[in-house]
Amino acid sequence: MPRRKLTAEEIELWRKVTKQAERLHPELPQSVHPTTLPKPKPTKAPKFRLEGFEVGQNAQVKPVRHALKPSVTDNLRASPVQMDTKAFGRMKRGKLKPEGKLDLHGMRVDTAHPALIRFVLTSQAQGKRLVLVVTGKGKDRDEPGPIPTPRGVLRNQVPHWLSIPPLTQAVLQVTPAHISHGGDGAYYVYLRRNR
């Protein structure tokens, strides 16, 4: 839209306003007429190319990829192997027999965490290398809601507890158990040698 010039009435009104108003910077010189701003220069619009688009054709929409948090078992499976690779392969196939087992079924978080700490540290003190921690798969929520919630509180908390002190110094590797030892409802915990 082009700018219009001020009329004589508008200029006279402006002069009356400026006589009554106090100047913010009295040291600056006063101009007789208000200056008009220069016309804005048009900016160049970016050029978009539509290749092979016909009127009435639907545009191809790229599918949106959602960055959902991977499950705990997927994170454990993707973590690097810290122990002997041969023993790790045998453990994943269910060929290594766990030397100890802790069943956390039916426990609450406040009782399960101290029980896990006690079990892992005593197992390491006894010289055990592979223990099994059974958490269960957890219950589904009664009402599915819009926000996805992880299934099983202990199933999601146990790997975290094993990666923080005081258990981080005792644990070498954590991985989901073979189906013969509980599958996704249990974890193999490979312990460091007691020194």
Rank of each mutant, 00 (worst) to 15 (best):
R3W: 06
K5E: 12
K5G: 02
A8E: 14
E9S: 01
E10P: 06
K16D: 13
K16T: 11
Q20M: 07
Q20N: 09
Q20S: 12
E22K: 05
R23N: 07
H25R: 07
P34D: 08
P34N: 02
P40V: 00
K41M: 02
K41S: 02
A45Y: 11
L50R: 09
L50V: 10
E51G: 11
G52F: 04
G52S: 13
Q57P: 03
N58C: 03
A59H: 11
A59E: 03
P63L: 04
P63Q: 03
R65P: 00
K69D: 14
K69L: 15
T73V: 15
T73R: 15
N75S: 13
L76R: 13
R77N: 13
R77S: 10
S79K: 15
P80F: 03
Q82R: 15
D84I: 09
D84R: 07
K86E: 14
A87S: 07
M91C: 09
K92M: 09
R93Q: 15
G94M: 02
G94C: 00
K95H: 07
L96F: 04
L96R: 06
K97P: 00
P98W: 01
H105C: 08
H105P: 03
D110K: 07
T111G: 06
H113P: 01
H113S: 11
I117M: 05
I117V: 15
I117R: 09
S123T: 06
S123E: 10
Q124V: 05
Q124K: 13
G127F: 00
K128T: 04
L130K: 01
L130S: 05
V133I: 09
V134R: 10
T135V: 03
K137Y: 04
G138Q: 01
R141W: 04
P144A: 01
G145H: 11
G145C: 02
G152A: 05
G152V: 04
V153A: 04
L154R: 01
H160L: 13
L162D: 03
S163G: 13
P165Q: 14
P166D: 06
P166K: 06
A170I: 08
T175Q: 05
T175H: 14
T175S: 11
A177N: 09
H178T: 02
G182H: 12
G185R: 08
A186V: 08
Y188T: 08
Y190W: 09
L191D: 03
R193W: 11
R195E: 14
